[in-house]
Design a protein around this nucleic acid. Sequence first.
DNA 1: AAAGATGTTGCGCAGAATGGAACAAATGAA
DNA 2: TTCATTTGTTCCATTCTGCGCAACATCTTT
Lengths: 232, 232
Amino acid sequence: MLRRMEQMKQPRVESVEKALSILEAFTKDRPAMTLTEISVETGLYKSNVSRLAASLERYGFLKRDPNRRFRLGPALWRLGALYRRNFELGESVRPVLRQLVRETGETASFYVPDQDERLCLYRENSPDPVRHHLDEGARLTMHSGAAGHVLAAFYLGDSKAKSRLGTDGSCVSQGERNPHISAVAAPVIDANGQFHGALAVSGPHERLGHDALAKARIAVLSSARDLSQSLA
Amino acid sequence: MLRRMEQMKQPRVESVEKALSILEAFTKDRPAMTLTEISVETGLYKSNVSRLAASLERYGFLKRDPNRRFRLGPALWRLGALYRRNFELGESVRPVLRQLVRETGETASFYVPDQDERLCLYRENSPDPVRHHLDEGARLTMHSGAAGHVLAAFYLGDSKAKSRLGTDGSCVSQGERNPHISAVAAPVIDANGQFHGALAVSGPHERLGHDALAKARIAVLSSARDLSQSLA
DNA sequence: AAAGATGTTGCGCAGAATGGAACAAATGAA
DNA sequence: TTCATTTGTTCCATTCTGCGCAACATCTTT
C-alpha cells in the first residue's frame, strides 16, 4: 500500500502521500469503501483516515454516498479530463486508431506510461464480436505484452525490453500477457525526439497468425510514423 | 485559492489541502505551470510547493513535461475514469440526451454538483451550427442558469433557488448566465428519492422563444422521468 | 561573463499530525 | 424493547513533521 513512501529520503510530505494512497486504494472492484475498509486497505489508523478523508472531501476528491460510504469525487473527473486534454494527442490518435482497425480488422490502442505501469489512453475496438476487449483508462503491467515492452524500452530505458524490439522499435508478442492474444506495438516519437507512447494492434491469436501479424506490424509502424508527423 | 482552508476548525489536514490546492490551480487556460507560477497562484512558498509537488509526482498526480514544467499526471485520468464509472449514469443518460436533442433540435446536458459549482458531466450537442457549445467536464456557477437553480435547490437546499422552480421541479432561464441563451432544466431523482443531477436543454434565445421553451420543458420533464425509471 | 531567474536543500522552531483511547452513533440480534 | 457489536468521531499528550526562510545550485539571457 504505502510501499512507495517507505523508500528513500527524497523530499516528500508524508501526510500528503497518505492522503493520495487513500485515493489509490479505490479500484474498479472497490469503487466504494467504508472508513474502516480504507483503514485496513491503507494500513492507516481510522482516526487518521477520518481526518485525511475530511480534507479530500472538502476539495471534492472524495464524496460520501447515501450510505455514508466513501467514493471518489467529481474533482477527479474534472482534473482527469484536463489531464487528457493536455495531450492534443486524442485528436490525432483517434483517427489513426480507427484507420488501423479498418486496415487490420483488429482492436487498436494507444498506451502511455503511468508510474511503473501502462495506461490505455485511447482505444478503438475491432468490429468483430470476438475481440480483445479492454476499457480506456485501464492499467496493465509494463513488463509484458508488446506495448509493455515498447514503453519499458523507451520510457524506462529498460535494456532487457530494448533487446526484444526490432531495429524499427516495433515489438511482437504472442500469448504473453494473455495466452489467447497476440499483439504488435510501435513507439510514437515526435519530431523533437519526445516519446509519447505506444501504438498497438491486438487480437485473438487464431486470427493474428504469422502472416496477419506481419501485415499488422507494417500497418502499426506506418501509423506510428503518421502520428509522429501530426505531433511535430 | 486557499479560501476553503481558512474557514472553520473542522477536522482537516493542512498539508493535504495545500497539495490539493496545487492540483486545483490547474485550469484549461493554465494546463502547465512552473514551480514559481504554482507558488504565486496558490500563495504557498516555493520550497513548500517543491516538496508537496514531489509527493504528488511520486503518486502520478503531477508530472513534469520536457521543459520541467508541471502538468497534471495520469493518476488523475485513471481515478477520473473510475469516478465516472461509479455513475452507471452515463449509459442511461446518453441515450436520453440524444433523444432530447432529436426532439428539441437543441443541445442537451446533464449536470451534477461539484462543491459549490456545477459540473457538466454529459452533453450532446445540437446538430445546428448555431448552438450553445460547452465541453464535458466544464464547471459553471451553481447560482445562475436553469440547471444551476435546480442543483442549488435540490443539492444545496437553497430556498431562494427553490422559489424559482415550478411545482414539477423544473426551471426556465432566459439570458441569465449568457444574454443570448435560454434554457430549461429539471431534476433527476431516483425511486429512492436520491438526487442525481439536472437534465437541461439550452440554445440561442432566438430559437428558444416562449413556445419552443414550453415544448422543451415538457420534453425535459418527460426525459427526467424516464431517467428516474432506469435508475431505480 | 555577469546578471536574473528558477528550482532545491539545510536548518531550527512551532505547531501540525499522529496514535491511542474514550466516546458517540448506528446497526443488528435476541 | 434492550443489549451487544460494529463503525465513525473527538479528545489529548507527545513527537516529529512540515514550514519559513535564507543560502545554495542550476539554468537562461544579455
